[in-house]
Design a binder for these strands. Structure first.
Lengths: 175, 175
DNA sequence: ATTATCTATAGATCTATAGATAATGC
DNA sequence: ATTATCTATAGATCTATAGATAATGC
């Protein structure tokens, strides 16, 4: 209810967003044009403007939905294994790597702060309420995902071991 | 010598790269067009193609130079404070935040692996040769920088404390 | 001779608006 | 009446090439 564009009211708007998501994930951000998006839904580009005021509102709605989904994934991981930073990190990684372009789109955006905080709440609990450590751990997870997505690790690198090392570093009791 | 585009031979090519760097850093990636770049150097767009085969070679050369610079910064930090992960992390952060657009450009690229490894060598030494931990620590630093650059932390967040928490987590002796 | 440059332009895009037309809901 | 859609198009871009012209180096 906060933002009409971010929370589509009509079926058509939802259908457009679903198509945008598929298009972005399949062909990357450059493919997400109003023309191609319209084509996916079976209408012409100008008709999109009856449902979204402009392109950025479509993009914003995609990012918003993705962040909500991430929050849900983390909440589920917490429910399954309360207090486990490892479980949260694994769930985060899995979800992010499953949606590379959406992940990049979302993390490249400035989103409502309460949404972000809600998503990070399980992490806050897992790390015993240490804010600074929560942010550092979040940055670690984000950095790992981005580097995996962008192929920044050497092909023979043991990425799982790197995740494990980071998880151990943050989960361990403070010295 | 590896790549002619990445290591410009002529003064003009170097001048073009310098202008590209300034343009990118001042106005962001969308401003970096062949026309605008040519304008900065005082020539027309087609003339650029006498010096670079295409736009991507210009971009690649920028990323290459930035990564070399990062390697230099880390090496200098190591020389000043051998074996200190904190010193490396601080130097990395400072350099990255001083060149936001270049940093994003560079980290969004796949670069020659030996270059990346050379840049990471001081980190490897500081973390006592633990490869997995080096990668995790690198991801942490990268994640922190990206989140700072993209304004992903709450305005009242103590970012320095987050850096300190991550540095402590990785620098501490293993349990 | 060779090189750097220019003008002109091909060939593709894009986002977004204006105004007409068809379809739906009262 | 209102809404969704279409066609047509404005108005901006972009990258990159072709071919002519000026300037440089032998």
């Amino acid at each position: 209810m906060t933002d009409p564009a971010a929370r589509p009211a009509t079926d058509r708007a939802r259908q457009i967003l679903a198509a945008a998501r598929t298009l972005l994930e399949r062909e990357g951000p450059d493919a997400l044009t109003m023309r191609r998006l319209a084509g996916c839904v079976g209408i012409t580009a100008p008709s999109l403007y009856k449902h979204f005021p402009d392109k950025s509102s479509v993009v914003h709605a995609l990012a918003d939905a993705m962040l909500r989904e991430t929050a849900g994934v983390l909440a589920a991981a917490e429910a399954a294994a309360p207090g486990s930073f490892r479980a949260l990190a694994t769930a985060y990684r899995t979800h992010a790597l499953a949606h590379p372009h959406l992940y990049r789109l979302t993390t490249g955006h400035r989103l409502p702060q309460d949404l972000e905080e809600r998503a990070a709440a399980p992490l806050f609990r897992a790390l015993a309420g240490d804010e600074a450590r929560v942010r550092a751990a979040w940055a670690f997870a984000h950095g790992m995902v981005v580097m995996e997505l962008n192929g920044r690790f050497a092909t023979d690198a043991d990425v799982a071991a790197a995740w494990a090392a980071g998880i151990a570093a943050f989960a361990s009791v403070r010295l």
